[in-house]
Nucleic acid binder design. Structure first.
Lengths: 242, 242
DNA sequence: AGGAGGCCTTGATTTCAATCAAACTGCAGC
DNA sequence: GCTGCAGTTTGATTGAAATCAAGGCCTCCT
């Protein structure tokens, strides 16, 4: 594809030109001059799987856009029990505005690339640019909807339904066009069994057994522990408790 | 109490003068002239416990502020399993902006009084008044934090910890000043055992047994099935899994 | 006050997932 | 190619909460 200098890219920082966050992410709400100001203080970087992005160590300061990869948000009870309370994908915005200490930890579940901004820059722009706040509200409402769906899964579904629901979630994230009532899907699991267990409120062993059962029932195939093939997504949807 | 006409109430609709939503709720973001415009199309009403506010029946159209009482947000699986995914109290804003069908049902858990607005009025004001959208973002972020805390409870706590956590939630709602590390509390449960069960992902019987155990262990007292007395909140907090 | 019905509690039994315990697989490094 | 380890699977057993089943207690209504 050839880069064109037309009205859409005029005055837009090079850093942002090919950035997905400018289209579907929060940066799409900014005017070119704001984008220039933001780009001055922002920096792209990559972190490897397992890195802690928000939490006690504060590896990444301020806020970020996720450019690629998967970030897991976890909460830990004092005795070590852990629950994943959210998964974020590109081009989600990462960080909790208007609050000092985040009560959760954000960790890279896969290798992740980020575009990070200082706290003050974003907070200043939020005050001046209502469009930015609107995008943030849209993302937050979406996350709330997702969290509530997850509460149903955690509170009321069986282990088998939970695992099937998780696979549905990943499948529809990988291919948002996917019709959950027909068709097929192939994807790599972005989480280990232990992480899936922490996401679903189960143990590793139970996750493994339920995956084995889905395999035995020919609902899915698994290669190399990671690559999942769903022949008929409707059957998987059924196993997820509709 | 005597109504005074001072600088704070000048030009403010009578309907809104004593309204809590004007202080802590979303209406606090509006200028007097906007309040007047909003008051023209808004209406106060009371609904009794059990009434459906949002859902298939759409008893209340558009958006509302909760003036008093408790509203429960529930999701139902196709086979009837139910999960409460949120509780809302005064002066919360009720309704999901920017989306046609709400994937959930809102029901009055107690008798509730509301101030309702037509959909178009609020959506118009959201476009024109960034302050309003900011308040809504603040509420949504708070709800998201609460939902994530709840996910930990649903996914990783035992039945006993869940019930204790629920009591802590109600106690700290009733008295926001309450220090969760000391002191005592008395309150009426706003939910039946069946509703508590749907909130915690448990059965009625398990909720009852855990309450009985907390009583037997002298952590709480219960009168008339509804009134709960917590002598030492720290002991309850401990039972909630910290 | 009496009765009816909806909530709530308590007890007995079953079941699903957790726990305990090995063994297996695939991959990274030597 | 071997080695070692982290991650995964599989099997046996236990245990916490669900289910099944009565029975008791408020509250409201007449």
């Amino acid at each position: 594809m050839i880069e064109r200098l037309d009205v859409h890219s005029a005055g837009i920082p090079v850093l942002c030109q090919a950035c997905e966050a400018r289209h579907r992410g929060v940066c799409g709400a900014l005017e070119p001059d704001q984008l220039v100001a933001l780009a001055k203080t922002s920096s792209k970087h990559r972190v490897t799987s397992g890195a802690e992005l928000i939490g006690d160590m504060e590896a990444v300061d301020g806020y970020s856009n996720i450019l690629s990869g998967v970030v897991k948000l976890t909460k830990t009870l004092s005795d070590g029990r852990e629950q994943i309370v959210g998964l974020q994908f590109a081009p989600d915005f990462l960080g909790r505005p208007f609050r000092e200490e985040s009560a959760l930890t954000a960790q890279a579940a896969t290798d992740v690339s980020l575009c990070s901004f200082p706290r003050a820059t974003i907070e200043g722009m939020l005050k001046r640019s209502p469009g930015l706040e609107h995008r943030l509200l849209e993302q937050t409402l979406r996350e709330l909807d997702e969290a509530r769906d997850w509460m149903v899964t955690l509170g009321r579904k069986t282990a088998g339904e939970k695992v099937a629901s998780f696979l549905m979630l990943i499948a529809t994230y990988i291919d948002p066009e996917l019709d959950p009532r027909s068709g097929s899907a192939v994807f790599d699991l972005p989480l280990t069994r232990a992480e899936i267990a922490d996401f679903l409120g189960l143990t590793i062993e139970t996750v493994s057994r339920q995956l084995t059962k889905l395999k035995a029932d020919k609902v899915i195939q698994i290669e190399n522990n990671r690559r999942v093939t769903v022949e008929n997504i409707e059957r998987l949807r059924f196993r997820a408790g509709l």
